[in-house]
Write a protein that binds this DNA or RNA. Structure first.
Length: 606
RNA sequence: GCGCCCGUAGCUCAGUAGGAUAGAGCAUCGGUUUCCUAAACCGAAGGUCAGAGGUUCGAAUCCUCUCGGGCGUACCA
């Protein structure tokens, strides 16, 4: 099934083309700004009239004459300076909603179609692309902290939505697993194993790396105070670069242990698409770096400047107004993230065959990516057919308006943050629903706590900073995870009650061909249910999860209105199937958006 | 200095190619539980879209300037 907005766009655009006698007309169909104008409005006529220098209202009349939407809409109205107002026919809606529902249920019956792949009658894109999404990218030997939250979950959500729409998505976890700091970490680990070995204890990396952060700090401190250690660390760096087996082995162990930690956090966050096969950290490109520099030099793009090797892409200036360098090799010969990013970009275009590469990082790196893209294009490593995007986001702030830190000024550990969210959610559950079993409370607390953190992040415009507040994200009112989860749980409650009352939902909906929509709240909900695809398209087009949360929130609100106004189980026999279906499709849509796309768990009761 | 992002209700924020009378939530005030979960619903009030010009049928949205904030700006990522 095509989404309604697209059908309207297509047909009206065609009518405009024949009325105006030129192609490439855009109807610009949008949801109406006000319900009194109908459900959708076409805004394109006015722009076209301007281009043709004709009267917009007259043109609108011509367009309407050429247009037959009687299968979908009530008679069209021309309003204001030349809007075409569209109102969906109730009988169209009545069959469309059932069709979407049956489509979903069919996939359920056919089995084997995992929930995340159910389509809600939404067509896949006609031109699927291979899209690389670079996100999360934590550092080895450090715990993930709040700074990794946004990249990880926004990236994950973008992957889910793009995949749902039919693209071939290739996540890439570009972990920070290479650099001079790993020399000292290897040296420390080596030393610890020797010490532990002496005492006769069994040497286990898990013990040594139990607290990655402490491990990292200890190495740094030793490096500054212990001459012998500093030398060992330098040896280790050299050894690592040469591929020396001893150091490489130790480094691998550090990487492995760190990955365990990352996976633990990903599991907590319900981020499932990052694993070994798409983790390609900085180390994966280490052998390509000399080639990157050599190639850019050979092309005449890279030049020596103050001892460093730089590319000077056009249009970038430094403080003094001089050309700004993109440094690809330091004066001491070391490479930088610019070099690695170039190597990674080349790999993604050449090996992963990317048509688009999306980098999900904070907005402070904007300049870096602008320069990276400019250099890659100049070098001819990406053609015009490859779309490069920096999907940036703002900072997570504390209540004081500065980037979130602990009282002692350290980064807030992601694991601890999530654990606290679950704890807080637990006490809310305790208070609201004390009669639930301990197990149920745990499950709900996990879903609500983690969901609250993620939902709060998603529901903000990603480009702006936001203030992190447990109280706000765990509030039951407003656009929050608990509100959404509650809406879902209420529907599930109705379905449980139906069983008690011997109402078989399956039977009532089995051969349903159409609905019987009469109440305003029913119509309102039905109209909104058919717009799920629209919301996903909008969210994907700009890589903005908040469009999806906004849709889900409004859906839940419309459901609530329906819920208070329209009894379901007590409804007359001619109304009950309609209402049961509206309930179930709402639940399925919320579950899909929340659980499959945003990675937020739903609960059957709360 | 220059560049980028931003400034929308008391507070936190939406606003999807420039569309009609700018929307939510919180807080405030008022109402709704013999009725499927009140963790809910309904209503009221609240605005010079930072300010000033401009572009046009039409601007929170595009352009110019001013003010205010954040970030970035050569060897960290």
């Amino acid at each position: 099934m095509k989404i309604v907005l697209d059908i309207l766009e297509e047909r009206i655009s065609a009518a405009m083309a024949s009325a105006a006698g030129c192609d490439n007309c855009a109807a610009i169909v949008r949801p109406s700004t006000d319900a009194k104008f109908g459900d959708y409005q076409a805004n394109g006529v006015m722009g076209l009239a301007k281009k043709l220098k004709t009267n917009p209202r007259k043109l609108a009349e011509e367009v309407v004459k050429n247009l037959d939407l009687s299968d979908i809409c009530e008679p069209l109205e021309i309003a204001g300076p030349g809007f075409i107002n569209l109102r969906l026919k109730t009988d169209f809606l009545e069959t469309a909603v059932v069709e979407i529902y049956n489509h979903y249920v069919q996939e359920e019956y056919l089995g084997q179609v995992p929930r995340c792949l159910r389509r809600f009658g939404i067509d896949k894109v006609s031109n699927p692309k291979t899209i690389v999404v670079d996100f999360s990218s934590p550092n080895i030997a450090k715990q993930m902290h709040v700074g990794h939250l946004r990249s990880t979950i926004i990236g994950d959500c973008i992957c889910n939505i793009l995949r749902f729409l039919g693209h071939d998505v290739k996540p890439q976890n570009h972990i920070g697993d290479w650099g001079t700091q790993f020399g000292m970490l290897c040296a420390l680990l080596s030393r610890k194993r020797i010490e532990i070995g002496k005492t006769g204890e069994k040497v286990s990396n898990t013990i040594i790396l139990a607290d990655l952060e402490a491990f990292y700090r200890e190495a740094k401190q030793l490096f500054d105070t212990d001459e012998d250690f500093a030398n060992e660390a330098r040896d280790a760096v050299v050894g690592l670069h040469k591929g020396n087996q001893r150091w490489t082995e130790i480094w691998r162990q550090i990487v492995r242990e760190s990955e365990k930690h990352h996976q633990e956090v990903y599991r907590k966050l319900r981020v499932y698409c990052l694993h070994d096969s798409n983790t390609r950290g900085e180390s994966a490109y280490k052998d390509d770096l000399p080639g990157v520099v050599a190639d850019l030099k050979q092309k005449g793009l890279a030049v020596d400047s103050d001892g460093a090797v730089c590319v000077f892409p056009e249009g970038f200036k430094n403080k003094e107004g001089q050309p700004l360098p993109f440094i690809i090799q330091k004066s001491d010969g070391a490479y930088l993230y610019a070099t690695t990013d170039l190597a990674a970009l080349r790999y993604r275009v050449n090996e992963l065959k990317a048509n688009a590469i999306i980098y999900v990082t904070d907005s402070r790196q904007k300049l870096h990516f602008e320069m990276l893209f400019a250099v890659a294009k100049k070098a001819g490593w990406v053609g015009d057919d490859v779309e490069l995007s920096h999907v940036m986001f703002g900072s997570v702030l504390g209540e004081d308006g500065t980037p979130l830190k602990t009282r002692s000024g350290e980064n807030v550990k992601l694991k601890e943050l999530l654990d606290e969210a679950v704890e807080r959610a637990k006490s809310v559950v305790e208070e609201k629903n004390p009669e639930l079993s301990q197990d149920e409370k745990e499950t709900i607390a996990k879903a609500v706590g983690i969901g609250a953190v993620k939902y709060a992040d998603y529901s903000n415009n990603r480009t702006s900073d936001y203030v992190f507040s447990f109280d706000k994200m765990l509030a039951m009112d407003g656009n929050t995870a608990p509100y959404m989860q509650y809406a879902y749980a209420r529907i599930k409650s109705i379905e449980r009650k139906a069983l008690d009352k011997d109402v078989s939902i399956e039977k009532e909906l089995e051969n349903l061909q159409t609905l019987n929509l009469t109440e305003p709240a029913e119509l309102d909900l039905a109209k909104y249910l058919v717009r799920y695809g629209e919301a996903l398209q909008a969210a994907a087009a700009d890589y903005r999860p908040n469009y999806l949360t906004a849709y889900l929130y409004e859906l839940a609100q419309k459901f609530s209105a329906f819920y208070t106004n329209c009894p379901v189980l007590k409804a007359e026999p001619d109304k009950r199937p309609t209402r049961l279906l509206l309930c179930d499709l709402t639940a399925k849509t919320i579950r899909h958006g929340l659980s499959e796309l945003l990675g937020i768990e739903v609960v059957e009761q709360m």
